[in-house]
Amino acid sequence: MAQQPTSSALRALALEFKSLQEEPVEGFRVKLINDENLFEWEVAIFGPPTTLYEGGYFKAHVKFPPDYPYSPPTIRFMSKVWHPNVYENGDLCISILHPPIDDPQSGELPCERWNPTQNVRTILLSVISLLNEPNTFSPANVDASVMYRRWKESRGKDKEYENIVRKQIAASRTEAEKDNVVVPTTLDEYCIRQKPRPQESEADMTDFYVDDYGDDLDDDEEEEEEYNEDDEDSGNEES
């Protein structure tokens, strides 16, 4: 039987999604695949300027577990991405998405793996960083890893890796045009100028909470009213 989503997971994802809509982060955009499902997002990652992936538009699906943020999500690229840390089926392999267990064979420390303080922002910023600096010590795509190391060691003279990436970038730009997305290609376009965030009341946030959260607030108000009534009765007795 499938595990049911926890209320804490619903709240966490709702708040994260709202935050990313109100305060976008440079390098990526997010939306829901289905407006009725907070546990599956579509992410568009833009290749960072001055890197090999500059001008790229890479779409991926992020799936969150029912007990998020206590377990990590998974990320699968829908766009073709030739990269040492992306499997041929598009699955992303990165330490931050691995459960925090002690696995000496992986070469990863538990502190490098997932923990509940991580969030979508930190995950996707790590993915963008990984585009520029792949981890070739434990590659998901061995062929891509070998090509990348040849490209780097030759200081760009060996063009095999670069040529594959550039073909994929060109294909991704066609996809961006279909989606009516303007891909940033300069640092000025890439960097988002943040607007001051308006002050929000607690009431504004309750729309993103599950129904039982509102019930908890009602219970608190009833307890406060009972407390006030007790104080009034006590005052009458003393008089």
Rank of each mutant, 00 (worst) to 15 (best):
residue 226 E to T: 08
residue 224 E to K: 10
residue 215 D to W: 06
residue 68 Y to H: 13
residue 123 I to R: 06
residue 13 L to E: 01
residue 93 C to F: 03
residue 97 L to H: 06
residue 125 L to T: 10
residue 151 W to V: 10
residue 19 S to E: 04
residue 178 K to F: 03
residue 153 E to Y: 12
residue 117 T to H: 07
residue 75 I to Y: 02
residue 139 P to D: 10
residue 204 D to K: 11
residue 237 E to F: 15
residue 104 P to F: 05
residue 198 P to K: 00
residue 228 N to D: 15
residue 203 A to F: 03
residue 52 L to Y: 12
residue 6 T to A: 09
residue 123 I to Y: 00
residue 219 D to R: 15
residue 165 V to C: 05
residue 130 L to H: 07
residue 65 P to M: 11
residue 86 V to M: 05
residue 16 E to Q: 10
residue 8 S to F: 00
residue 61 H to Q: 13
residue 9 A to I: 06
residue 172 S to R: 06
residue 27 G to Q: 05
residue 162 E to L: 05
residue 63 K to Q: 15
residue 187 L to K: 09
residue 17 F to T: 06
residue 231 D to E: 08
residue 191 C to A: 09
residue 29 R to M: 10
residue 162 E to R: 03
residue 192 I to T: 08
residue 143 D to C: 07
residue 168 Q to M: 03
residue 4 Q to C: 12
residue 46 F to N: 13
residue 205 M to L: 13
residue 15 L to R: 14
residue 124 L to T: 04
residue 56 G to I: 08
residue 1 M to S: 03
residue 18 K to L: 11
residue 19 S to T: 11
residue 73 P to H: 14
residue 151 W to R: 02
residue 215 D to H: 12
residue 198 P to I: 00
residue 160 E to F: 00
residue 185 T to V: 06
residue 114 W to C: 04
residue 63 K to P: 04
residue 57 Y to F: 03
residue 66 P to R: 02
residue 25 V to Y: 13
residue 45 I to G: 15
residue 2 A to E: 09
residue 40 E to L: 14
residue 32 L to S: 07
residue 169 I to H: 05
residue 61 H to A: 01
residue 10 L to W: 13
residue 47 G to N: 08
residue 187 L to M: 07
residue 131 L to A: 07
residue 181 V to K: 04
residue 136 T to Q: 00
residue 81 V to N: 04
residue 198 P to T: 02
residue 148 Y to W: 14
residue 198 P to V: 04
residue 183 V to A: 01
residue 162 E to F: 03
residue 55 G to I: 09
residue 36 E to G: 11
residue 129 S to M: 10
residue 234 S to V: 02
residue 168 Q to D: 10
residue 6 T to H: 05
residue 161 Y to P: 04
residue 169 I to K: 01
residue 210 V to I: 01
residue 195 K to C: 11
residue 40 E to Q: 15
residue 127 V to Q: 02
residue 229 E to F: 06
residue 143 D to K: 01
residue 234 S to W: 14
residue 203 A to Q: 09
residue 217 L to M: 10
residue 199 Q to S: 08
residue 64 F to S: 12
residue 96 I to T: 04
residue 53 Y to T: 00
residue 187 L to Q: 08
residue 13 L to D: 00
residue 195 K to F: 15
residue 44 A to Q: 11
residue 86 V to Q: 01
residue 184 P to F: 05
residue 55 G to F: 01
residue 172 S to M: 02
residue 60 A to K: 07
residue 112 E to D: 14
residue 28 F to E: 02
residue 25 V to W: 07
residue 23 E to A: 07
